[in-house]
Design a protein around this nucleic acid. Structure first.
Length: 241
DNA sequence: GCGGTCAAGCCGTGTC
DNA sequence: GACACGGCTTGACCGC
C-alpha cells in the first residue's frame, strides 16, 4: 500500500481542509446555482459499502471537481477586471466590496483544493489500467460516467499512471543493471586474482623443455585430425610444447 | 501521448 | 499535544 493511499483511511479527516470547506461540512450551503459535478459515488455503482466517513471524505472534493483551473483563472480575471469602489470615491462601499472579494478569494482557494479520488474510484481505474493502459474515447466516456468524473480527469489519470509505471519500471531496470554490474565486477576481480595465482605458479616452477625428441613416425601425424601432414608448419607445431 | 513540472494534501519526525 | 518541517504521493497543467 502506498503512502498516499492512507488519505482514504480514517486518519486525517478534516485536517488541512480550508475554513470554508469545514464550514460547508458543518453547515451545508444552499444548492449551487450552477450545475455541480459530484465525485461522490452513487450506491447504484458501488452499493452501500461506502462508509459515512468515506462519503464525508469525498464530498468536499465533489464540488471542487467541478472547477477547472481555467475556471479559477477566469474567476480571478473577472474579479480583477472590475472597477473598484475606491476609485469611485465611496469608502464604505469599497470596504464592503473588499470583504466580498476576500470571500471570493476564499471560495476560489477552496475550489483550488486538490481532488482526491476515493478508494473505489482508484480501484476501478486501476482495474481498467490493468486491462488496457490506454483508453479510446468511448471507453474514456464510459469510465467517466461510471465514476462521475470528467473524461479529461480520466485521461489525465491514465497519462499520469502510464508515466509513473514507466518510471517505476525504469527504476527496477536500473537496479537490475546495478546488480549485474556488481556481479560482473566481482567476477572480474576473482578472475584477475586467479590469473595472478596461475602466473605465480608458472614462474615458481622450472619451465618444461620447449622441444621433445619424438619418434620420426609421429611427426607425420596430426593429433587432431589424425591425418598425415608432412608440412613443415605441422611439424614445427607438433614439436613445440 | 509523453515528459516535465507545479501544487495540494498527507505522513513521519523532531522540537518545544 | 501543538506546531514546523521535509519527504512523498498524486491530480492537473503545459509544451512538444
Amino acid at each position: 500500500m502506498e503512502r498516499g493511499d492512507s488519505c482514504d483511511t480514517d486518519l486525517s479527516l478534516g485536517l488541512g481542509l480550508p475554513t470554508i470547506i469545514r464550514q460547508q461540512q458543518l453547515n451545508p450551503p444552499p444548492p449551487p446555482l450552477e450545475p455541480s459535478l459530484t465525485l461522490s459515488l452513487s450506491e447504484e455503482i458501488y452499493g452501500s459499502t461506502t462508509t459515512p466517513k468515506e462519503a464525508r471524505l469525498s464530498s468536499p472534493h465533489s464540488t471542487i471537481s467541478s472547477f477547472s483551473t481555467s475556471n479559477i483563472k477566469k474567476e480571478k480575471l473577472d474579479v480583477g477586471g472590475e472597477e473598484t469602489e475606491v476609485e469611485r470615491g465611496s469608502a464604505s462601499r469599497a470596504r464592503e466590496r473588499e470583504r466580498e472579494r476576500e470571500e471570493e478569494d476564499e471560495a476560489s482557494a477552496a475550489a483550488r483544493k486538490k481532488l482526491r479520488l476515493t478508494k473505489e474510484q482508484s480501484a476501478l481505474l486501476e482495474d481498467r489500467f490493468k486491462e488496457h493502459s490506454t483508453l479510446n474515447p468511448k471507453q474514456k466516456q464510459t469510465l467517466a460516467k461510471q465514476l462521475n468524473l470528467r473524461a479529461r480527469q480520466i485521461e489525465v489519470w491514465f497519462q499520469n499512471r502510464r508515466a509513473r509505471t514507466k518510471l517505476k519500471q525504469t527504476e527496477v531496470d536500473c537496479e537490475f543493471l546495478r546488480r549485474c554490474c556488481e556481479t560482473l565486477t566481482e567476477e572480474n576481480r576473482r578472475l584477475l586474482k586467479e590469473l595472478q595465482e596461475l602466473k605465480a605458479i608458472k614462474f615458481s616452477t622450472p619451465p618444461p623443455p620447449l622441444f621433445m625428441q619424438l619418434p620420426a613416425a609421429t611427426l607425420m601425424v596430426c593429433p587432431s585430425c589424425e591425418r598425415g601432414t608432412p608440412s613443415s608448419s605441422f611439424l614445427g607445431r607438433s614439436l613445440l610444447l
